[in-house]
Amino acid sequence: MATLNMTPELLKEMYYTMALSRALDDRMWILNRQGRAPVVYSANGHEAVQVGSAMALNRGEDWIVPYYRDLAMVLAYGMTPREVMLHLLGRADDPNSGGRQMPAHWGLKRRHILTTGSVVATQDVHAAGLALASKVLKDGRVSMASFGEGSTSQGEFHEALNFAAVHKLPVIFLNENNGYAISVPARKQMAIMDVAAKAQGYGMPGVIVDGNDPVKVYEVTAEAADRARRGEGPTLIEAKTYRFVPHSSDDDDRAYRSREEVAEWKKRDPVITFEKRLLDEKVMTAEELKTFQQRIKDEVNDATDFAEKAALPDPATLWRYVYAD
């Protein structure tokens, strides 16, 4: 399975980031259930798409414009667990928003993660715009927007693809297709099976990839980034995956999907299957895995403690940054 640039170090980092994301995610739900975090949005199940794609980019240089599901992606892009927890708990030092935004509304300027709101599909056009600037400035950067399959029903998704294709912009549209938009199944969202098929209508490649395999996602993303850098324009990637938990901590997914369906997908849990693969193929030793697990535990504990002790925003700051002055 060793691929072009995939050194064992890279593969292990991939695994570590996925497992770290899962552990942070689990901790967030515990904090929610304890009444310490009012709301949680999860990456649980999406780790392979997010880490595989992020790692294929020039991290911190290429732009990403993620959505609320992308915890593992922003970790792979250099956000620290402490920063994630500061954001979750609405602390003053949250680098995403100073505690202003709802959890999972990412944005980190120093790593080229564009700030994102809640209105789905708005980020698609922003990514095209970032790429427009890259094309004009010839800065060699690629931009990547990510979004759910439900959000491809929005006009702005289509407008972004069309604009990017017409102008051959260096942008990647990454769809994390988990089959549901809250309760609404994909078949009520579109009359086709694959989001990727939408690419054709705009004149760009549409690539389907197994979203639970981080290496495959890495490969297709690397290829899309190369294409973009060569000036050949945008790519739509559809990563088929699944979310293992409700849409958010306010949702109850038993109302709209069977436990059997969830269990079936869990057999292909990206964190577990990738862990097994790295062990089987002797990329990672059992010893290393143990060390990783301990380190993850420590990082999650440290981040939680750090954020809980951190100060809340001063109410007087409510008025800051309405304008530049």
Binding site: G90, L312, P313, P315
Partner: peptide
């Protein structure tokens, strides 16, 4: 904003 002191303000 989200954070309780800001929301309350």
């Amino acid at each position: 904003p989200y954070s309780p002191p800001l929301e309350h303000a």
